[in-house]
């Protein structure tokens, strides 16, 4: 099974560390990826605010490209979309193309104008789902060479990875990432904010609202003695990491938490060198919480 990798726009800029670490982990686990040819932007949440049918068409073009690439073993082509927004939008489009005749008719006509068709074969998957449910958590556990003992992880799923078109975990209290980090030797911190929205692009538009959402997440993770937040979405990672200092200044907080991608964390446990995991691209690399003190992980990786 080769997954059709759909990076999405963010993984080519702010989310580069996500792309690099994801690819490194897939290489390590020998999960074959093939980048979807000439993929286009999924449309995110903004496109549908202007024109819904066009938004569906935009996303459906990607599904249509994959649609023509059935697997050698006859199974359905699977798109691997690491960004929560891409994942949700592509999954939603697939859902509506299957279940809503009107959407299907309009979008098919539009695709046809550009010489494409979508027959509904494509499955949309998130790496979290693929690693844990396809590859298998036990197999991952067996490949761990640096158990990440001492890490207290606040698993932050964000919103769109588990709802409403996703089926691999509970939409309010998911556990997939928690189970994964436990298998990597770390401890997952139980907190009630794991799917509470980071505000998405509000940090760039209505900053007060966006900052307060992130502040609540960061404060609560700190309070529960997490020493790292892991995310599975480029926008969540950006918001939680990049605005920490400004949140501290604005609200008089003293938050100081590394925010990394779960793929980087996996890579460290699997013994992949920090550089390949783009640890250096984080503002604040995850610190080894081992008794030795503030030894940076990539020093021994």
């Amino acid at each position: 099974m080769t997954y059709l990798y759909f990076p999405g726009c963010s993984l080519r800029s702010t989310g580069r560390a996500y792309e690099e670490s994801l690819l490194a982990v897939c290489r390590k686990l020998e999960i074959p990826l093939h980048e979807l040819d000439d993929w286009n932007c999924c449309g995110a949440t903004a496109y549908v605010s202007i024109d819904e049918t066009r938004a569906f068409t935009l996303a459906a073009r990607n599904l249509a490209i994959a649609d023509h690439l059935p697997q050698p073993d006859g199974s359905d082509p699977q798109i691997l979309a690491p960004c929560n927004a891409c994942y949700m939008v592509l999954a939603k489009t697939h859902h509506f193309m299957e279940s809503n005749a009107e959407v299907r008719a309009h979008v098919s006509t539009a695709l046809h104008a550009g010489g494409m068709t979508y027959t509904g074969q494509t499955r949309v998957r998130h790496p979290l789902d693929v690693f844990v449910n396809d590859f298998g958590i036990d197999r991952i556990a067996k490949k761990v060479v640096h158990p990440l003992k001492g890490f207290r992880v606040a698993c932050y799923y964000g919103c769109q990875v588990v709802r409403p078109f996703s089926e691999f975990d509970h939409p309010v209290y998911p556990m997939t990432m928690d189970r994964l980090v436990t298998a990597l030797g770390a401890e997952s911190v139980d907190w009630p904010m794991k799917t509470r929205c980071c505000g998405g692009s509000l940090t760039g538009t209505i900053q007060e609202a966006g900052f307060r959402l992130n502040r609540a997440l960061l404060k609560e993770a700190t309070k529960r003695k997490a020493n790292i937040i892991l995310t599975c979405c480029p926008l969540c990672q950006h918001n939680l990491e990049c605005y920490q200092q400004r949140i501290n200044r604005r609200y008089g907080e003293t938050i100081n938490l590394p925010v990394a991608y779960f793929t980087q964390f996996m890579g460290l446990a699997l013994g992949i060198p920090a550089k390949e995991l783009a640890i250096q691209r984080l503002f604040k690399p995850p610190l080894s919480p081992a008794p030795a003190g503030k030894q940076e992980i990539h020093a021994h990786a």
């Binding site: 309010v172 907190w191 009630p192 904010m193 609540a216 609560e220």
Partner: peptide, 8 residues
């Protein structure tokens, strides 16, 4: 909507 131990 929810019951939590999140103290704000």
């Amino acid at each position: 909507a929810e019951v939590t131990d999140w103290a704000a």
